[in-house]
Design a protein around this nucleic acid. Structure first.
Lengths: 346, 346
DNA sequence: GTAAAATGAAAAATCGTTTTACCGTGTCCT
DNA sequence: AGGACACGGTAAAACGATTTTTCATTTTAC
């Protein structure tokens, strides 16, 4: 009882050699089915628990992947990536070792070295918002994938949200409901997310032959209060927009507050669409917020799937595209109605 | 370049034996400082990365702990536990391997066996809401701690929220603001969380010499809509309560909706206090929700700290209390004001 | 009937560390 | 003088598996 039972004990009890036990359990070498079954029976009877340390040491693979993220939960997005990674890893028979770096490069380096010392089979390198990032040298020593970040040099596969499509989808939904005078409430300090969504907004507006769409874009700081102030400007413009497409759900909160203070009803007087699909927010708002969900879960899944391929086969070769853009999908709730004086709430 | 550099290569390059390298790097055996430094220098020069698999195999400890949870993110609480566990683990020089069981006992068993095969030094067993749970047999083989769950038999240390204190704190805050007619909106199907908070509510009311506090408790299903309906009943009672203490933030949302539909202002006409401190919700609501935060982060931290002690010393002995109750803390926002006709908004 | 090939299982090497035992040499103590 | 002990270091034995090699039997082929 003192020691755990090992392959050696099983061998002894079954009256065979340790190599035979190893083969029997892994089903590798050829052997009589009778022997195999007997060995396996003895193993479960003895309560044998394999030692993955020994196994990994010998096989030079651990079936563990690393996940280094600059945050595991300061935003719900990070959490979704984490969940996606875990689910896909679990499906592939992999465990994950997660480290959080708080965006500190020295912590990040330490994390990567730590993961290397555990000999993880690969690492998912995730950022918590869409950006361009350098590839840490330590990453090149092992299979790795970027998530929500574009490597400055295309030496590592990456996946990011298709911001332009996201901007288009949100806008097109409003256009489809008959809106023509649509404002876009965006942010002043922005990266690929901001630019892509603005571009997508323009795409959709132009495709609907609406001129001068640039004029409908307003820029704000990224806090609810700033959004609320800026939204007030937008909603007091003349002619007043019948719908607002927001950079994110926080901006949408700002619009709700501004609308409340202006005694405008949502969606009767103004429709609003967000981006993020923060469930807690979208469902807390009254009425529920229609919003475009960001593909963080999907990015996490994609990341470990391509990591698995890289681990198995050629390291980041041929058919693996360098970067894949994941689409967002529109989640309909109750914050959008056709424009016009008629109230269309069911 | 083909192979990673190991302790052997360092030994060769430094002209010493592998045992000497091992001692030099770990600082264990006695040796001339000069030798030690030279070996270390060679190690960094060669870019030596220790192999924790080999080290763990030999030392019979991995510096990895397992975290098995029935969910990693279906609620923000689970996420907070995860963060607490990671932070405390990182501070103690431990890595964590997390598995999600979706509450399925067979998955749970598989998870525990998997973690055992990786020879984790211990495991944190977390549930996503306060409950009493059986101790899986597989857990007994290694140091382990329960989080947000009381083991049916006291053979494993555990930590849970101090529900009674939480109920008391929320209620006392309202009493302190001068409220006397306080309703408690609770849930019909409940476990320790429900009972504890109701008891805490009673405690506070009785301590304020308010009779018949039971009469102020209303029970609802745990959905926003049900809460809203029940809250309507509560807010149309006569005399109308001047404040509502809610079982959780979702119930508070229901109160907000009911208040809106009854044209009651918060906090001027009715004050509300929640429990959970779901930041996204509390800050989205208008006005911001005053609520009692649940100690999930702290429970995660406590769990790995006591796990560390168990791993180091005597397995769950003497001074370790069997279960510790973590207090909640009141987070003040804008949903509470003194009662009475006067508007006291600053 | 014998050589060659296939089979089933055991023995030995290996993965990269840590740890124990040990070996000289020199110092200190009694 | 002689034992104990510190020092600085090395060799070798673990740790618990997998994989390669070896070896003794059968089977198959001619």
């Amino acid at each position: 009882m003192a020691q755990r039972v090992g392959i050696k004990d099983v061998a002894l009890a079954a009256g065979v050699s340790v190599s035979t036990v190893s083969h029997a359990l892994s089903g590798k070498g050829h052997m009589r089915a009778e022997t195999r079954d007997r060995v396996r029976a003895v193993a479960v009877e003895l309560g044998y628990t394999p030692n993955r340390l020994a196994s990994s040491l010998r096989q030079r693979r651990t079936r563990v992947i690393g996940l280094v993220s600059d945050s595991i939960s300061t935003t719900p997005f990070a959490t979704r990536v984490v969940v996606g990674v875990h689910e896909a890893a679990s499906a592939a028979g992999l465990q994950v070792m997660m480290t959080s770096t708080h965006g500190d490069p020295s912590v990040e380096l330490a994390s990567l070295e730590l993961l290397a010392s555990y000999r993880v089979d690969g690492v998912v390198y995730a950022k918590m918002f869409h950006q361009t990032a350098d590839v840490p040298a330590a990453l090149l020593a092992m299979p790795s994938v970027f998530v929500d970040a574009l490597p400055r040099e295309p030496i590592v596969p990456a996946t990011v949200p298709d911001e332009r499509q996201i901007g288009r989808v949100g806008t097109e939904f409003l256009l489809g409901q008959g809106h023509r005078n649509i404002a876009h409430l965006s942010i002043v300090h922005g990266g690929p997310g901001r630019d892509g969504r603005v571009a997508g907004f323009m795409d959709a507006m132009h495709a609907a032959s609406i001129e001068n769409a640039e004029g409908f874009v307003a820029y704000s700081d990224d806090t609810s209060e700033a959004y609320a102030r800026r939204a007030r400007d937008v909603l007091t413009a003349s002619p007043r927009p019948t719908a607002v497409f927001c950079f994110n759900d926080r901006a949408a909160i700002g619009v709700y507050h501004a609308a409340a203070s202006l005694r405008l009803r949502i969606p009767e007087d103004v429709s609003v669409v967000g981006v993020d699909n923060l469930e807690l927010v979208a469902e807390t708002l009254n009425p529920g917020l229609t919003t475009v969900s960001l593909p963080h879960f999907e990015m996490g899944v994609w990341a470990v799937r391509t990591l698995v391929k890289m681990i198995a086969g050629e390291p980041f070769a041929g058919d693996t595209p360098s970067v894949v853009f994941q689409p967002g999908v529109l989640i309909e709730r109750a914050s959008v109605a056709p424009p016009g004086p008629r109230v269309t709430k069911t």
